[in-house]
Amino acid sequence: MRHRRFIISLLVYSALLGMALGYLLPVWMMVAGSLKPDAQVLLQAGSLRGFLPSEISLQNYHDVLARVPFGRYLFNSAFITLSIVLCGLLVNSLAGYALARLQWPGRDKVLLAVIALMIIPLEAIAVPLFYEVTLLGWRNTYLVQIVPFIANAFSIYLFYTFFLGLPKELEEAARIDGAGMWRIFFAIVVPNAKPVFATVAILTFLTQWGSFLWPLMVTHSEAVRPLPLGIAAFYTLPPLQWGDIFAFGVMMVLPVLLIFLVFQRWFVRGVATTGVKG
């Protein structure tokens, strides 16, 4: 009996380990590849040695910094993403609050529209949006990469469900204490909604950091292009060097990883809370 249980455990854990490796290996290969001399990357890619850095060198990282304006891409990505996150937190939380708490004609219909909008992907509206920003003369600017992504149906919905779960008496007490609508929102509601703000911030950051299609459509100069377009530049920039691409990839993922580790506590709590309330 005990023997059988041991074998079952062994099988289950082996399967789990196999799956975990399946997800981890590409990332591992990227890190390993970024530390190898470029010539070895493709040569070893077909064998298990592809996963082991034979001689560790930082040459690829030097190359990346020399071949493309990595600092510029990094700044652009950070600026665009942080702008979207900060403006998005403000706009979407206010919208979620208006839907959850304020009385106004047409509120239910707007809420329905927000829910419906959540299922429309960017790819479906990219072309009409492209025409719109062209008409506005916004192409090849920061603005065109920020403004269309500030208002976000999913973020509004997350805020909406969280605010529904906050005890109404807090806001009523503040009203009686003499606070106006804006004061109630910023002094009472926001400090008690930290988990949902953290959740929305992280989800928005992750989505926007990897944004590729839209910047590719609306920008053409390095001055405003974000990191994902920088990595794409290597495919068109001869010679094609996989080591450099891997190094760029590592440098692009690191900031996200750091942010996730720092805010992980909030993130997990936020998802749990919105899950329960929603």
Binding site: P167, E169, L170, E172, A173, I176, D177, I188, P191, N192
Partner: peptide, 14 residues
Amino acid sequence: NIAMVFQNYALYPH
């Protein structure tokens, strides 16, 4: 200029 005590007290938790 009315003050109110709520059933669940509604103290500002933060």
